[in-house]
Simulated scan of single mutants.
Amino acid sequence: MAAHTSRSVIFAALGGNAAIAVTKFAAAFFTGSAAMMSEAIHSVVDTGNQLLLLFGLRRSARGPDESHPFGYGLQLYFYTFVVAVMIFGVGAVISFLHGLEKVRHPEPVENAWVNYLVLGLGILFEGAVWIFALRAFNRERRGRPWIRAVRASKDPTVFTVLFEDTAALLGLVTALLGVALSQAFDAPVLDGYASIAIGVILGLTAAFLAYESQSLLTGESAAKEIREGICRIAGDEPGVAGLNQAKTMHFGPNNVFVALSLHFSADLQAAEVEGVVTRIERKIKAAYVEVGQVFIEAQSFEADRRGRAPA
């Protein structure tokens, strides 16, 4: 269900950005607006980003094999990071440089009504995609504050599209103001400043997405409630005298690896320990469908403390 939702959001953004990009380029060449050209570049980058996310989703769906025993889920996080680099390296830098050139050599915007028409339609279409992405994100965050929900999310596709569309809407409004103010005050340089502002918006968006995706890419643990539930299941199982360590890691949005170090009762036989391990693994996977593999190590409290003591 989560993957289906992600693809729906990405396809909606892809269709909207591709159509808007063509329209913006036509308007930019017709009117000579730097802000409109920045917006056209922004839409092309967003279109490419959606294609990258779809490719990442496809790659991450591959099952485990000999070279990737935990599957390919981390590839989704890699391509999300590439998207952040694309937003900064292509969208933000080009928009900033293009605006800087327009500030140095300002030229009046011609046929500004074309810009108003295209930007107005852009706000309408981007707004529709933004609402679609927002609804999907709200279902995922379940009432939690936005930033906390983003930090807790292990599926970056929905919030990446949402933040891209937020940046797109802010960029459209900025471009509209740039064109309007440059006409109202007969100051073409303001159109260049609007392009620079769009570059700054994209740069901040890229920095935030890069920070979040690198955290996922370098290995995040499961959510706190999942970790606590796993510990509770293991600790409550008859035959377990104590829990030494419990470690989890996401190898994809729906692929969690669990490693437990347990201290078993001294009177248990080997076959009985094996039975306890099997029951714990079965209960964990039944309670949390995102758990893919469970590794359980039998180790005494003393051995665990010695293993964690500094050399």
Rank of each mutant, 00 (worst) to 15 (best):
V118Q: 04
R139V: 10
L216C: 14
G171F: 01
H263N: 15
A309P: 14
D46T: 04
K224I: 11
G91E: 06
S300N: 04
H4K: 13
L57Q: 07
N254G: 09
A12P: 07
V276T: 04
T80K: 10
R7Q: 15
G16D: 04
I87K: 10
A180M: 07
R58E: 06
G239V: 04
R306N: 08
E274G: 14
K102I: 05
F125C: 14
G120W: 02
V173K: 01
L181G: 01
L76S: 09
E237K: 12
A180H: 06
I280G: 14
E302V: 07
Q299I: 06
A303T: 00
F257W: 06
A287E: 10
K24N: 09
E290F: 05
M86F: 12
Q214I: 14
T5V: 12
G48I: 01
A206Y: 00
A3T: 11
Y211G: 08
A303R: 07
A207T: 05
T5D: 13
T205K: 00
G99S: 06
G235I: 07
A234W: 02
A12T: 13
R232L: 13
A92K: 02
G15W: 12
H4P: 09
A133K: 09
C231P: 11
L57K: 03
G120E: 01
D65K: 04
S95I: 00
H250E: 11
F208S: 10
A187L: 06
F295A: 11
Y79R: 00
A167E: 06
K154P: 12
A26C: 12
A112P: 04
E164A: 09
M1H: 15
L170F: 08
